[in-house]
């Protein structure tokens, strides 16, 4: 087993799929010889050449429009939107065109495409380059939304996303790019819509996504020292959503805490809270508690950004306070 960083796993996962399927092509800004601004596509230009790894102008509508037109005519494009904040300049293509055209045409067209994007904060980039926009995508019918939390899952979920016949928004937590994990030999292929349980405990269930998963795991270690034994669920995929795993793991402990990087209102945790309340209410021993970024634009200064995004300390404090009240 080798170790790969999250950013190396991006290129590894893309290469795995590009080698097996010549219809997989990539477009985006600076993804070619430059290897991507986050170095997520290093080596792909050299291996697959400029026809399959194609640089584009700063034209997000054209990048995603091209991906859509190509997907409906036989290719499996992987388009990169450099920062997920930039979805705001091309959201028509995502939300109105890609997401709806299959339904509107009574199933005449399909969009086997992936839109990769650097998501979330922690890099001190300020309010326009740090947002967690998974909820923008989750609320549009017709989009699948995948958010890996470690390098191994990047590869497996990337493969599943590329092979999926539907459009997938693949959000890469920028804060995780340098993190490493063990990568098994050979092909890695996951299934979309499957949550994992990286830690099991008896007292409370922390449900986390993306960059919040390692924080939830770290918090669980500290909580264990204080006598609170936590399960951690890595949601991995918001659409499709593995509600069965979440319901099972919440019912087993009787307590649910969501750990969300997104601003408070309409976060994915609110939807999960609704589902758990409707379907597992009598298994709960206390209120569902959401731990989120406050409902503010993200500040740039490290001192302030660290206060905004849920930290290990805040997760621990919140869980302790709630469990003891």
């Amino acid at each position: 087993m080798a170790q790969l960083t999250f950013r190396e796993a991006i290129a590894h996962g893309l290469a795995q799929e590009m080698r097996r399927d010549p219809s997989v092509v990539m477009i985006g800004e600076d993804i070619g010889a430059a290897g991507g601004v986050f170095k997520g596509t290093v080596g792909l230009f050299e291996e697959f050449g400029p026809v399959r790894v194609r640089d584009t102008p700063i034209s997000e509508q054209a990048i995603l429009g091209a991906a859509m037109g190509a997907a409906m005519t036989g290719l499996r494009p992987v388009a990169e939107v450099m920062f997920s904040d930039f979805f705001a300049v091309c959201w028509d293509i995502v939300a109105n065109e890609i997401a709806k055209s299959r339904y509107m045409t009574n199933g005449q067209v399909s969009f086997p495409l992936v839109i990769r994007s650097g998501n979330g904060g922690g890099l001190r980039f300020g309010a326009q380059h740090s947002q967690s926009v998974e909820n923008w995508a989750m609320m549009v019918p017709g989009l699948k939304v995948v958010v890996p939390s470690n390098a191994r899952d990047v590869i497996g979920l990337m493969a599943a996303a590329i092979r999926d016949p539907d459009p997938v928004i693949f959000l890469e937590a920028k804060a995780l790019y340098p993190t490493k994990s063990e990568i098994p030999e050979g092909e890695i292929l996951d299934t979309l819509g499957t949550a994992t349980v990286p830690r099991s405990g008896a007292d409370a269930t922390l449900v986390a996504l993306g960059a919040m998963v390692p924080r939830a795991l770290a918090a669980a270690e500290e909580l264990a020292e204080q006598g609170i034994d936590c399960t951690v669920v890595d949601v991995r995929s918001l659409v499709p959503l593995d509600t069965q795993t979440i319901l099972r793991e919440v019912s087993a402990t009787g307590r649910m805490f969501t750990v969300e990087e997104n601003p408070r209102l309409c976060g994915w945790g609110a939807e999960l809270s609704s589902i758990v309340t409707e379907e597992a209410f009598y298994d709960l021993d206390g209120p569902i508690v959401r731990i989120t970024t406050p409902h503010i634009p993200l500040p740039a200064a490290d001192a302030l950004e660290d206060l905004a995004i849920p930290s290990v300390e805040r997760i621990v404090e919140t869980v302790v306070k709630s469990m003891n009240s």
Binding site: V51, G69, A70, A71, M72, T73, L75, D92
Partner: peptide, 24 residues
């Protein structure tokens, strides 16, 4: 390949189909 009701969108989508023809 479709009638598009948000102004401008289908110009870039048509580019994608054309790219697909070129690639294939």
């Amino acid at each position: 390949m479709g009638s598009y009701a948000i102004i401008g969108a289908h110009l870039v989508i048509a580019c994608g189909a054309a790219w697909s023809a070129q690639y294939r």
